[in-house]
């Protein structure tokens, strides 16, 4: 009874309070973005950075550092974080399982295989960013295609989940075989890609990533009512007029493209996709997708940028991105859980 009363009152977060969290989140995104531009390994005075931003700086080095390194990196963290978090939410919905994440379909493994094939087989340690991204994307799309074809024949989400995991294992085994026969330099290059990174993206690549995340998020945002229906289970959703088969296809496609694109440019990033949906539900106390979808994207962006910012601080400079996302992100989620916030 006590629990019930508490939950009833906690559900009563009124609209203005929810909006306040959104405004706070947007403010946080802006703050983190500015911090990402102003903080870095090369110390540049704030006034100099400002003059680069308003286009009055004549210092070429400052211009390159701010406009070609810090801004694209901050945007990458923003888009990749949001995209992965949304993918995670969609997979958890798709499989009606809180432990699902973008990696369960084997799409991330597909990317790894694509990159492994290019990096390890050619033996080159100095492949261009574009060829790695392309290989990762093709790998991800190949697995997605397999899953989409399978989903036409398999109605059970659990069977599809097991299938995705099996494909993941098979593809990972292929990566191991490739690693076994690779040169030291190529192996090193592959391991570095696997650690994930938000840096080194060119402006056009950031635009492609950002465009994909924006389009994917918009498609899902326009279908939040369908997600609400879908969350009642396939049979209820169907009886309430949702073409479940078609909608499952849309969910798989959006998740696949988002995960594939982020992995292609940033490497396989752990944790964000699985954990951020729970974090957003805990903070917003809402299961309606019209609130949850933007909340998850916003939270993903905040977590992505925060992790990237930690990498720029003295304590994080020697750490890989994947270590930071899990090391700093997991305690946040544990804290929210222990505080008694309703997550499931």
């Amino acid at each position: 009874m006590i629990a019930c009363t508490r939950l009833t009152t906690s559900k009563d977060l009124n609209v203005s309070k929810k909006s306040k969290i959104f405004i706070l989140g947007l403010g946080l995104v802006l703050l983190l973005f500015l911090l990402e531009i102003f903080i870095g390994s090369v110390p540049i005075a704030a006034a100099d950075i400002w003059s680069v931003i308003i286009g009055e700086s004549e210092n070429k080095i400052h211009q390159i550092i701010v406009l070609e390194s810090r801004v694209p990196r901050a945007l990458t963290a923003l888009f990749a974080g949001g995209g992965l978090a949304l993918s995670g939410l969609l997979m958890q919905r798709f499989f009606h399982n809180p432990l699902a994440g973008p990696s369960v379909l084997g799409i991330t493994s597909g990317s790894s295989f694509g990159v492994a094939l290019v990096v390890l087989v050619t033996g080159s340690a100095v492949l261009s960013q574009v060829s790695i991204a392309l290989a990762a994307f093709i790998g991800a799309m190949a697995v997605l295609l397999l899953i989409l074809v399978a989903s036409k024949r398999i109605a059970s989400s659990v069977t599809l989940l097991v299938l995705g995991l099996m494909i993941g294992y098979m593809v990972s085994a292929g990566v191991t075989v490739l690693q076994f026969g690779a040169t030291k330099e190529a192996l090193r290059s592959f391991v570095f890609w696997g650690m994930g990174s938000f840096s080194d993206l060119k402006t056009t690549e950031v635009l492609i990533l950002g465009g994909t995340v924006l389009v994917g998020s918009s498609v899902i945002f326009m279908n939040t009512r369908k997600l609400d229906l879908f969350s009642l289970g396939n049979e209820y959703a169907y009886s309430m007029g949702l073409d479940v088969k078609k909608f499952r296809f849309v969910l798989l496609l959006v998740t696949g493209v988002l995960t594939g694109m982020v992995t292609a440019f940033c490497g396989p990033i752990a944790f964000i996709g699985l954990a951020v949906p729970h974090l957003a539900r805990g903070l917003w106390q809402n299961g309606k997708h019209a609130v949850l979808v933007p909340a998850v994207v916003l939270s993903g962006s905040v977590i992505g940028m925060t992790c990237d910012l930690i990498l720029r601080l003295p304590i994080g400079q020697s750490l890989p991105l994947n270590a930071v996302t899990s090391l700093f992100g997991a305690p946040v989620v544990i804290y929210i859980l222990l505080k008694g916030r309703k997550v499931f």
Binding site: H96, N97, P98, D228, S231, L232, G233, E235, Y236, S239, M240, G241, R281, N286, G287, K288, L292, F344
Partner: peptide, 18 residues
């Protein structure tokens, strides 16, 4: 169909925040 038929099942496992 949803205008003609609505359904109530015996039990269903729900994982929804609604």
């Amino acid at each position: 169909r949803a205008t003609f038929l609505s359904l109530v099942q015996t039990s269903a496992h729900f994982w929804t925040g609604l």
